[in-house]
Design a protein around this nucleic acid. Structure first.
Length: 147
DNA sequence: GCCAACGTTGGC
DNA sequence: GCCAACGTTGGC
């Protein structure tokens, strides 16, 4: 899961303990949350639009997908006038903090690891804020974070 | 259904 | 700030 640290960082998650992942307004990203994320699933917390960008921590899914109420709040940045509360369009999950990595694993370092070359995050043009991670990639990123 | 215009993401 | 990539919108 990606977040711009100026908006919400791993430090924010560590301080709060858990959060709901509101504001996703992309159907593919929503579908991953709604269809594929289960309580207990582990999450790489990625800092996007950062200097440098990279994996900053680990979280865990704490609640399966449910309607994102911010879609109906006209004062919210991600308000969507076309979504009907009777038929929710946008969903979110809750995540809880697991670990703030001792040091960020930069995107550039990830790109230099051949074991990660087919990781979705690193594919050209990909920009989904929620995307799947294979276990082998997850483990490799953690191994890199610990060395 | 096609596609141009526009908006967003996010690395650099 | 620039720009590539991609998604959405809306006219036709």
């Amino acid at each position: 899961m990606k977040s711009e640290p100026e908006a919400y960082s791993i430090a924010d998650l560590e301080r709060e303990g858990h959060t709901h992942w509101d504001g996703v307004r992309n159907y593919q990203a929503r579908n991953f949350m709604r269809d594929d994320m289960q309580v207990g699933d582990m999450v790489l917390f990625y800092h996007s639009n950062a200097t440098p960008p990279g994996v900053a921590g680990i979280a865990r899914v704490a609640r399966p997908a449910y309607p994102d109420h911010t879609a109906w709040d006209p004062s919210d940045k991600h308000f969507d006038a076309k979504t009907d509360p009777e038929n929710p369009r946008w969903m979110m999950v809750d995540i809880e903090h697991v670990e703030t990595l001792p040091a960020l694993v930069p995107l550039e370092v990830l790109r230099n690891n051949v074991l990660l070359e087919d990781m979705p995050l690193l594919q050209k043009g990909q920009r989904l804020s929620v995307q799947p991670v294979e276990e082998r990639h997850f483990r490799e990123v953690l191994r890199m974070a610990r060395t």
